[in-house]
Amino acid sequence: MPVTNEMGAAGIQGGALEVVDLSKVFHTRTGAIPAVQGVSFRVAPGEVLAFLGPNGAGKTTTIKMTAGLVLPDAGDVRVGGVSLWARHDAVTAQLGAVLEGSRNLYWRLTVRENLEYWGTMRRLSIRAARQRADELLERVGLADRARNTVQTLSRGMQQKVALCQALMHRPHVLLLDEPTLGLDFESGEGIKRVVRQLAQEGTAVLLTTHQLDVAQELSDRVAMIRSGRLVLEGATADVLARYSQPVATIVAATPWPADMAMRLAGLPAAVTGVDTLSVDLADDRGSTLYQVLARLNPHPLLKIERHQADLAQVFQEVMGDAAGEVGGATPVALSAGSVREGAVTS
């Protein structure tokens, strides 16, 4: 018997997660703290959006507003076009979440008891919950741990079970707040594998993490937030291309001869070390690198590498830039492709 999501049948048949102009100000004794300011993004079915930012940037507040755990001052969250606050129960039934800093599970219950409990609480029949629990445990490789209480599992195993509980009702949207934090390599890989599979199956995944390599590996799109404002959003590949430098580095197997700089005269290349040189490809029409290589011939080479930015570099650069931008007006510098930079407000 296939496991169905009853609330899905009741109206919402999948669709994208849309976060529209969310804002939140927390009022404390020391004054008002604008935690999130006009944040908007969309996660399509089958897409993983990495939502990145430094501590205190507003990631967790945004993800909790998306889950309905924090009430926004303004804005809306929609799944399949249906507003979370207009049809709270129906939309919540399409959301699954693994929240950072929470256990997400009852430690005194066994793995299977937890999954059956959360499945039934999410409107699965007992039989369907049992079947789904077996299926998920098999998938994450914990079938042999089904009868263990959660408190006896390792942190990695607990996180896998937390992920399973969020998936019991086959949500269309999955919210993951630091899912691989503190996990060993193998456990982290296991979580990443499942996230990839879920995206392939059509789940929209909103992922927050400080592990930028994980974000780069998993995400189709990336959004960066700082001081409550979205400062960059775009397809991960476009973002990386946008921040990559038009520079190639050539590494020699042995030190360059003393006259190497002379040999490269007239070309946009410069010796940068005893066995390295860089080639400026900003005005390259396809032949620059070959011209340089012709001058290097027959010196033995080890590798030629074109600069490719990673998310860590992008993050560092964007957060550095944003520090000067977010307090002022709203500079939006659109580059080629679909990358939105500056204080992205819509």
Partner: peptide, 18 residues
């Protein structure tokens, strides 16, 4: 204290009813 309250609040039932 145990970190399960938010998950309880995420189930598609009114928290009053739960």
């Amino acid at each position: 204290q145990n970190g399960t309250l938010e998950q309880v609040m995420l189930v598609p039932w009114s928290s009053r009813l739960v």
